[in-house]
Amino acid sequence: MDLSQAIECASAFVFPGFLTDDASLSAERAKNEEALGVLRAAWADAPAGREPFSYDLVLSLADRNRDVCDRFGIEKLRDVSPSSLSRGLSNAELIHAVAVLQHRSDAQVAAISGPDARDLNIAWVDAPVSGMVVGIDIETTDRDPARGYIINVGLEFMTIGPKAKPHDPFAGYFGLPQMYAEKGVPLADIHKIQWSDLEGRRPFREDKQVQEALLAAMSAYPFMAHNAAFEDSWFMLHIDGYAEARKAGRVVPIDSRDICRRVDPETRTLPHEMRPASLESWARRRGTLKAGESERHLGLDDVELMLATVQAEFAARNML
């Protein structure tokens, strides 16, 4: 699919309700997601202010695709690889995160880490870290942001330093299409969120006030998340104005999972099956999650656990 075909696909007047058989719905989803990939790449590669179309076209196509996936049955897509989910932040973004928390230039950090971030572990401990961050965690109904919904958001601020404590917490739940009252909330086995938690609540994509507040917070301070590429991918298709702010450099993601992998030496010695860089495993090693306790997989609970664990790691490595 070329760019003109992708724009045509996104601009077409399609009513998913008229697609009644699985073959038609599956073909529509595949076409939508291919178009999304082409459109997002073209928009990202274009110089700022000279994009060939408004990013709203991408958001509207993603919204339409979720409706198609609902009608097809999202449970049938569990084995279909996510097409809109980034595997990780780029080396340049990982380097920039260090530079922001150390209050120096990307070039200074890259001189230590190398442009490929190979020695970013050395750069992290080369200078003290400080400054305000906003910790964020979301719970969703799918891995792919073009197929599922954000149903829970947790947010909290923290000024990194020797006596840092999180403050000003926010937790919100967001609704789903009515069909899930009978089908059940997808991925409830992970996040434990039930229909009763969401009934009557406004869907995240319709809650413009919450979107604006989240974007304002992330534009004011770097946002930290455990596997930040996940939140970043979802926000690209769920928050109005996020893609534009991200492209302009006003939004800076910091990946606490990458911090764990780079800074905690135990991640290189523990066996893979222990998932040493997972938040739960890391928190147990740093003493922020007690024996017998488990990660909650709820937005605000996980934000508080992440921030406490990051703080403990920074203190253990004399980085504050």
Score class of each variant (00 low, 15 high):
residue 37 G to E: 08
residue 116 D to H: 14
residue 293 E to H: 11
residue 219 S to E: 03
residue 11 S to A: 06
residue 202 R to N: 08
residue 270 L to S: 15
residue 48 A to V: 11
residue 312 A to K: 12
residue 313 E to H: 02
residue 275 R to D: 04
residue 219 S to H: 15
residue 234 W to I: 05
residue 165 K to G: 02
residue 301 D to Y: 10
residue 12 A to S: 11
residue 176 L to S: 09
residue 136 I to M: 13
residue 43 W to C: 02
residue 55 Y to L: 07
residue 38 V to K: 02
residue 93 E to K: 15
residue 252 V to D: 03
residue 169 P to A: 04
residue 225 A to D: 06
residue 95 I to M: 08
residue 73 G to T: 06
residue 291 A to Q: 14
residue 137 D to N: 09
residue 133 V to L: 03
residue 220 A to Y: 08
residue 210 V to G: 09
residue 138 I to L: 14
residue 14 V to A: 14
residue 112 I to S: 09
residue 2 D to R: 13
residue 121 N to I: 06
residue 36 L to H: 10
residue 217 A to D: 10
residue 167 H to I: 04
residue 312 A to I: 10
residue 267 T to N: 11
residue 235 F to D: 04
residue 160 I to T: 03
residue 196 S to R: 14
residue 202 R to P: 05
residue 88 G to S: 13
residue 187 L to P: 04
residue 218 M to Q: 00
residue 244 E to S: 06
residue 46 A to C: 03
residue 203 P to A: 08
residue 28 E to W: 01
residue 34 E to V: 09
residue 56 D to G: 11
residue 223 F to D: 07
residue 110 A to D: 05
residue 46 A to N: 07
residue 59 L to F: 14
residue 255 D to N: 10
residue 260 C to W: 01
residue 140 T to L: 13
residue 162 P to R: 15
residue 197 D to V: 05
residue 91 N to R: 05
residue 120 L to T: 06
residue 29 R to K: 15
residue 248 A to E: 11
residue 7 I to D: 02
residue 278 S to L: 02
residue 294 S to I: 01
residue 71 R to E: 08
residue 150 I to L: 02
residue 60 S to R: 15
residue 48 A to I: 15
residue 196 S to C: 12
residue 59 L to S: 11
residue 157 F to D: 00
residue 33 E to F: 03
residue 111 A to T: 05
residue 51 E to A: 05
residue 105 S to F: 10
residue 15 F to K: 08
residue 14 V to N: 15
residue 96 H to Q: 11
residue 40 R to C: 02
residue 226 H to I: 07
residue 244 E to C: 04
residue 290 K to P: 00
residue 117 A to Q: 01
residue 262 R to S: 06
residue 218 M to Y: 04
residue 84 S to F: 04
residue 239 I to S: 08
residue 68 V to L: 04
residue 27 A to K: 06
residue 231 E to M: 11
residue 3 L to K: 10
residue 37 G to V: 06
residue 177 P to D: 01
residue 105 S to E: 09
residue 115 P to K: 06
residue 304 E to G: 09
residue 122 I to W: 00
residue 12 A to D: 14
residue 94 L to I: 10
residue 74 I to F: 03
residue 265 P to C: 01
residue 1 M to I: 01
residue 306 M to S: 00
residue 141 T to P: 12
residue 48 A to Y: 10
residue 106 D to L: 08
residue 227 N to W: 15
residue 22 D to A: 07
residue 7 I to V: 14
residue 199 E to C: 11
residue 246 R to N: 14
residue 137 D to G: 09
residue 40 R to H: 03
residue 174 F to S: 12
residue 59 L to G: 05
residue 27 A to T: 08
residue 88 G to V: 09
residue 188 A to R: 15
residue 112 I to V: 14
residue 309 T to G: 00
residue 127 A to R: 07
residue 226 H to K: 15
residue 135 G to S: 10
residue 188 A to P: 00
residue 118 R to P: 07
residue 239 I to M: 12
residue 300 L to C: 03
residue 236 M to V: 15
residue 102 Q to A: 00
residue 178 Q to V: 13
residue 220 A to E: 15
residue 236 M to W: 12
residue 102 Q to G: 00
residue 50 R to I: 02
residue 134 V to Q: 08
residue 8 E to L: 12
residue 58 V to H: 12
residue 271 P to Y: 13
residue 82 P to Y: 07
residue 32 N to E: 12
residue 123 A to I: 13
residue 100 V to Y: 00
residue 121 N to Q: 07
residue 227 N to D: 12
residue 221 Y to R: 14
residue 94 L to C: 13
residue 10 A to C: 10
residue 136 I to V: 09
residue 310 V to F: 01
